[in-house]
């Protein structure tokens, strides 16, 4: 069944954000230098809000699985969150995050509460960055799933697509803001989407970034190419920035502390590049070498998740490429993996 479509002007959309703010926390993307960054909606800064653009600096997990969350007692019900301008690469990451925290035998009640409490207004990318490779990862630079509403900039208005009951309710509650789309609106959206998709394709082709079909099974196949992994890790400084910037990375540690009020437990993002990540008692470490930890990151994304969840845990957002101080480029690692240039040394 086709999703319902509406239109809304930019002015009305910002008015809507203003109405929603108060009872909700409304977060939108702002232009910050050359980047886009999420922050609380401020009507005084409307001129630097960019709802189109490209993916923001923060991965969307920051809002649903925050970097440090208190997990003592029962899950608190905070102000509902309306998150606007979420890009498709981040929407794809929600499939991984949801599967981890809501799936399995036991649900994480804190994540579940945050997720339930969040309304996602996704939006099309209106341009691509050189680091974008979503199309190689079975994605696209426009929303197709995991949104409540999706907005696409068309001329001087947005075409609004409803993706969930929650999204429809939002529209029904503010009917006067929304109009019926013209017969051409969808064609215009399609043309804009094709243009940005083409940009991403050009970036992928320009660099020769392999797609999922070529990557499938390659980490396991090349697991023992120690020289390759060592070379890839040669400039890694173990900062964990790739893990923290990644929208699908979900690993966390449980951190306990106490004050006068008593003992508290927090769920804090962890990074598999850190040397302590897999360490066990008695100083024993299954991944004591840095190259093993870098390899683990690829093993998890391109082998574990395809095997256990049926999808790659990379959305092609390119954040890790920008975040890495050692200039390790995930696309170059993937290219190396499929290149066939690296051979197992004869002594192994």
């Amino acid at each position: 069944m086709k999703n319902n479509l509406y239109t809304i002007t930019k002015k009305d959309l910002f008015d809507l954000f203003g109405r929603l703010a108060g009872a909700n926390r409304v977060v939108v993307p702002y232009i910050k230098g050359e980047k886009l960054s999420f922050d609380d909606f401020d009507p005084k800064k409307e001129d630097v809000i960019e709802l189109g653009g490209v993916r923001q600096s923060q991965p969307v997990k920051s809002f649903i699985n925050p970097v440090r969350e208190k997990i003592t007692g029962s899950a608190p019900r905070g102000k509902p969150l309306v998150l606007a301008g979420v890009k498709a690469c981040d929407l794809s990451s929600l499939f991984v995050q949801d599967s981890v925290f809501l799936g399995g035998d036991i649900e994480d009640p804190f994540y579940a509460e945050n997720r339930k409490n969040t309304t996602i207004i996704a939006s099309d990318c209106t341009y691509a960055k050189e680091t974008c490779f979503c199309v190689a990862m079975e994605g696209a630079p426009y929303p197709s799933r995991y949104f409540d509403l999706s907005i696409s900039a068309i001329d001087n208005y947005f075409l609004v697509e409803v993706g969930s009951e929650k999204g429809q309710k939002l529209i029904d509650g503010y009917k006067t803001f929304f109009k019926s789309p013209s017969v051409h609106a969808e064609d215009l959206r399609r043309a804009a989407r094709e243009r940005v998709t083409g940009q991403v394709r050009d970036f992928i082709a320009g660099r020769g970034t392999p797609d999922t079909a070529r990557i499938k099974g390659m980490v396991r196949k090349n697991y023992d190419l120690t020289d390759f992994w060592k070379e890839m890790a040669s400039t890694c400084v173990e900062c964990g920035a790739c893990n923290l910037a990644c929208p699908t990375c979900h690993c966390f540690l449980l951190f306990d502390e106490k004050d006068q009020a008593g003992a508290k437990r927090f769920r804090v993002w962890d990074a598999c590049l850190y040397s302590t990540f897999a360490k066990v008692a008695g100083n024993h470490n299954p991944r004591k070498h840095l190259y093993e930890r870098l390899r683990n990151r690829f093993d998890k994304k391109f082998d574990f998740f395809p095997e256990t969840l049926g999808c790659f845990a990379c959305t092609g957002c390119g954040r890790c490429i920008e975040a890495c101080p050692g200039s390790i480029d995930i696309r170059e690692v993937l290219k190396g993996l499929v290149s066939g240039k690296w051979k197992t040394p004869p002594h192994e």
């Binding site: 981890v100 925290f101 399995g104 035998d105 036991i106 994480d108 979900h250 690993c251 966390f252 540690l253 449980l254 962890d270 598999c272 990540f277 897999a278 360490k279 066990v280 998890k300």
Partner: peptide
Amino acid sequence: NMSCGIGKCGH
């Protein structure tokens, strides 16, 4: 390094 016990923390 079993930590969360419920298959979520990844360790």
